[in-house]
Amino acid sequence: MYSFTNDYSEGAHKNILAALIKTNFEQASGYGTDHFCEEAANMIKGLVGNEDSSVHFLAGGTGTNTAAISAFLRAHEGVIAPKSGHINVHESGAIEAVGHKIIQVEETNGKLTAGQVEEIAKAHYEDEEKEHTVKPKMVYISNPTEEGTIYYKDELIKLREVCDKYDMFLYVDGARLGSALTSVDNDLTLKDLGSLTDAFYIG
């Protein structure tokens, strides 16, 4: 029986273990500056279809979300996320602990729509006292969602259009991205993610 509780409940594939054993005693510099990371980064850039993209290696989803959101946002800016989103429910307040408000949205099946995002952005910019409120600057989604649903290309295109309209970042939590990309219903590719989002990660 297989459990899909999380990505950490499974062991490593035998080919990964074999590669680790093969290179175990090879000395290399740390912190992502070794030739293995360089090779991996170049492979990812090729799959994303953007040689100018920036690839970083981090440990764990919460740390990655916190680092990315902190890097993208200024102190008065917040992130729009589904109410069930991982950053809102399961990350022990990490995002708000570093000073960025999560603007929660009641979603359907874990997914945000472009209409919901536009409604929040529009409300902010039409507020005569908007300088006193948190500015929505990023849209956070996870693919697949915490409900197990996936985003389709047309949904991402519409989210991108709204983000461009209101000068917001689109960020994808990809802790389970492999599951989304291999779903029989999926129509997104890594190249799509590279062109439609400002940042995403592969868990």
Rank of each mutant, 00 (worst) to 15 (best):
D173E: 09
A175I: 08
I157G: 05
D185Y: 13
D173S: 08
S183W: 01
D187V: 05
C163G: 09
C163T: 14
D167V: 11
R176V: 05
G178C: 08
L181D: 02
M168R: 13
C163V: 09
D173N: 14
L190D: 00
L190E: 00
M168I: 13
I157L: 13
L188W: 01
V162F: 05
L170Q: 09
D185N: 14
V172N: 10
Y171C: 06
D187G: 02
C163L: 10
R160C: 09
E155N: 08
Y166F: 15
Y151D: 04
C163M: 09
Y171W: 09
T182W: 02
A180R: 02
V184L: 12
L159S: 05
D154I: 11
A175Y: 10
L156W: 01
C163N: 09
K191N: 08
R160N: 15
D167S: 15
L177A: 08
L177F: 07
A175P: 00
G174S: 04
L156T: 04
R160V: 10
D185A: 13
S183Y: 01
D154T: 14
V172H: 03
V184E: 12
Y171D: 06
V184G: 08
E161M: 13
L190V: 04
S183E: 03
V172F: 01
V162L: 12
Y152K: 15
D167C: 13
D154G: 05
A180V: 07
E155I: 10
Y166P: 13
F169K: 14
L188Y: 00
K158D: 10
D173I: 07
Y166I: 13
A180D: 01
L156M: 14
N186G: 02
R176C: 08
L170C: 09
D167N: 15
D185I: 05
I157H: 06
A180P: 06
V162E: 03
M168K: 13
G178Q: 07
E161K: 15
L190F: 02
S179R: 11
L170M: 11
D154Y: 14
L190T: 03
Y152W: 09
T189V: 07
L159Q: 07
Y171T: 05
I157Q: 12
A175C: 11
D185L: 10
L159N: 05
L156G: 02
N186W: 00
K165D: 06
G174P: 04
Y166W: 15
L156F: 02
